[in-house]
Amino acid sequence: MELLEFARGPALQSAMVIFVAGVLWRIIGILALPFISIPSRARKGVLPEGEVKGWFEGIWRRMWPHKSFIRQALFSTINGHVYHIGLFVVVFLFAPHIAFIKDLTGLSWASLPSNLVNAVGVVTAASLIAALIHRLTNPVQRLISTFNDYFSWFVTLAPVLTGLLAVSHLGARYETLLAIHLLSIALLLIWFPFGKLMHAFLFVVSRGATGARMKHRGAQI
């Protein structure tokens, strides 16, 4: 059980410390850069509040592609939704995970049946694998992808797979599987702030800024 103790103890602890420090480092390192604003007059009828609205519209609007792009973006969008929702369900609606969060923050909420989460986990893993295949076979993505993209994919899939192995007791003793699962989460937490997984936070600013800019001009968000 020593590996499990290490995983539940020092590994997770240091990973969380790195996660918190790294996320703040990155976010503040960006947000504290000078704000270059161009104080042009907004399109008639767009008030400053309107631009705030544009900010949120930008965040919301980009959840789904515009009609003109639907055909080209269909796979990426649907597959993306599948594994993001899947990850959300698995991470936040699985009772043992909620217990973890509750222990950490005191907050808790209702969980989904474990078998259902299990199934979602399988779908999520499949969807992530499909995403990798797409990345490898699509010349555009191949060209623009870097180590960051592949590694981020790996650290996301790893907890899902190891979690599935843990619940199904496949491949090794449960405590070893659980320890590996927790170690894979530690890896995810450690990598998170430094790689592209930070998009989970940054999309708020990038979509928002464009939303506000376009709203200011009265243009399509």
């Binding site: 790195i18 996660f19 420090a21 996320v23 703040l24 480092w25 990155r26 503040i28 390192g29």
Partner: peptide, 12 residues
């Protein structure tokens, strides 16, 4: 960690 991260971010 939060304090350290904020300091690093501010510093960078």
């Amino acid at each position: 960690a939060a304090v350290a991260g904020a300091a690093l971010g501010g510093g960078s």
